[in-house]
């Protein structure tokens, strides 16, 4: 029973991880706080519903969710972040992205209503299960885990092995220095926003697959937790974001198992405050702690 909850927790954590990676990328590389990611997480599920409704097969709908969320990420970058580049304007830009998020919620509610909407998932994904290490695990959960691993591996390769990744890492180190090296910082901005938004969309897509429904309020109730996970894992630490997400997923699942109910929902926030109190650089110590700006 506990093992099963741990598996559930890892599945839940892997979805958090995708959004947390998005937040961490944008924050770690660009030093920007993009609240709209939570709502792109929410949109992921609705894009699938919309595209299947228009006749797309599920796999295509999933791809569309990633691409459309990525493109919307570019819109957010243009509307809320392009003009605010100085460190002073960091909060201004964050507020603007928050307003974009409010608009997304309202548009979804105008289109699909305020109630959760069913996601068309093949019934056998939910019914069937596979034996893993002597445990029966729902096919759906295996699919989610597999997809998440594929996306994380792709991100890893992208960041460490490609020219785009090298530029992104250069900007993360120092935008001024990257400019001197001939890196097109504006381009890196857009690339980072696209990747982060697509990841958030993917997280939301899987969240809605697991639940069988997409709901317009999950951006705030679940998506925002990725912010806390980012802080738990260490601001800007990609590995920490994944580990933190899985830790939080497992803790939440166990909390439900042991009857803490809704209180489990806020453990992540309490944990974040605790981490900021005792280890501001993050739980896993991998964050490159930069000297506070003089």
């Amino acid at each position: 029973m506990i093992a099963e909850q741990i598996v559930n927790g890892i599945v839940l954590g892997s979805m958090y991880a995708l959004v947390a990676l998005g937040y961490t990328l944008v924050f770690g590389v660009l030093d920007k706080l993009n609240f709209a990611l939570s709502e792109l997480f929410m949109l992921g599920g609705f894009i699938v519903i919309g595209s299947v409704g228009l006749g797309a097969p599920l796999w295509l709908a999933g791809m569309l969710a990633l691409v459309i969320c990525g493109l919307l990420g570019l819109v957010v970058e243009f509307v809320s972040f392009r003009k605010f580049t100085s460190p002073d304007a960091q909060v201004t830009a964050a507020l603007s992205s928050l307003a974009v998020g409010l608009i997304m919620i309202d548009l979804v509610q105008k289109t699909w209503g305020g109630e959760p909407v069913a996601v068309p998932v093949p019934i056998e994904w939910r019914r069937a299960s596979l034996a893993v290490f002597g445990m029966q695990v729902q096919t759906m959960k295996i699919i989610i885990l597999a997809l998440t691993l594929v996306l994380m591996a792709a991100l890893h390769v992208l960041i460490t092995r490609t020219a785009m990744g090298r530029n992104i890492r250069a900007v993360a180190e120092s935008p001024t220095f990257a400019t001197l090296l001939g890196v097109d910082v504006k381009r890196v901005n857009q690339q980072t926003f696209f990747i982060a938004s697509a990841l958030a969309g993917a997280g939301g897509l899987m969240f809605s697959l697991r639940n069988g429904v997409a709901a317009s309020d999950v951006g705030f109730t679940f998506g925002l937790k990725a912010l806390a996970i980012m802080a738990i894992g260490g601001m800007g630490d990609l590995r920490g974001a994944v580990l933190g997400a899985i830790l939080v997923g497992v803790i939440e699942s166990l909390a439900i198992q042991f009857g803490f109910g809704k209180l489990g929902e806020v453990i992540v926030w309490a944990l974040m405050i605790l981490v900021l109190l005792v280890r501001p650089s993050g739980l896993f110590g991998g964050a490159h702690v930069t000297e506070q700006r003089a």
């Binding site: 909060v91 964050a94 806390a228 809704k262």
Partner: peptide
């Protein structure tokens, strides 16, 4: 704890507080 560090942390902590207070009252 948040005020000792960077401004962004305080934003995160206050968002967390909103959720924590609401959930505690619910329970």
């Amino acid at each position: 704890p948040a005020l000792r560090t960077r401004g962004v942390y305080l934003i995160l902590v206050t968002i967390g507080l909103s959720f924590i207070i609401q959930t505690l009252i619910q329970n």
